[in-house]
Design a protein around this nucleic acid. Structure first.
Length: 141
DNA sequence: AGAATGACGGACC
DNA sequence: AGGTCCGCCATTC
């Protein structure tokens, strides 16, 4: 439908402030989001290749976000594991903070990072949304 | 510069 | 199982 398309483009514009109107529909972020919605989840490599403005986040946050991006769809990881993978073993709690500040939700799949005990401890848009995303990915990937 | 703040995790009741 | 307590770590005010 038409309105969802407009919404998609609006989301991409908010995620990538630099994109021009003229290149919006061909922007890689748009393609990735479109594929995600269609159930064909972008690979970690594809995600990391997107033109994110990494200068907008701290070095630590960046390392954590990149580690989170390497968690494939259909799978989950824990804050502690992501922290370790980012090069900061023991910083599980701080990793939670970094993911909570994720400027690019969905694309950077912070929703795939859950508690070590399997609980979905939290999410910016609400734990319910986190669960919906995980269910969507698990029933589709 | 020091204190407060968590989307943690593990240890114990 | 459910609840509390406490050490950790980087960011934020």
């Amino acid at each position: 439908m038409e309105s969802s398309e407009r919404r998609l483009l609006a989301v991409v514009r908010s995620l990538f402030p630099g994109v021009r109107h003229t290149t919006l529909t061909t922007h890689p972020g748009t393609a990735s989001l479109r594929r995600y919605a269609a159930g064909s989840f972008p690979s970690p490599g594809e995600i990391l290749a997107l033109p994110f403005d990494w200068e907008a986040v701290s070095p630590f946050d960046r390392s954590v976000l990149e580690a989170a991006a390497s968690v494939p769809a259909g799978k989950t990881s824990s804050y502690g594991a992501v922290a370790a993978a980012s090069g900061h073993p023991g910083a599980a709690r701080a990793a939670g903070g970094a993911l909570g500040r994720n400027p690019w939700p969905v694309l950077i799949p912070c929703h795939r990072v859950i508690g070590a005990d399997g609980r979905l401890t939290g999410y910016g848009k609400g734990v319910a949304a986190k669960k919906r995303l995980l269910d969507f990915e698990s029933n589709r990937s």
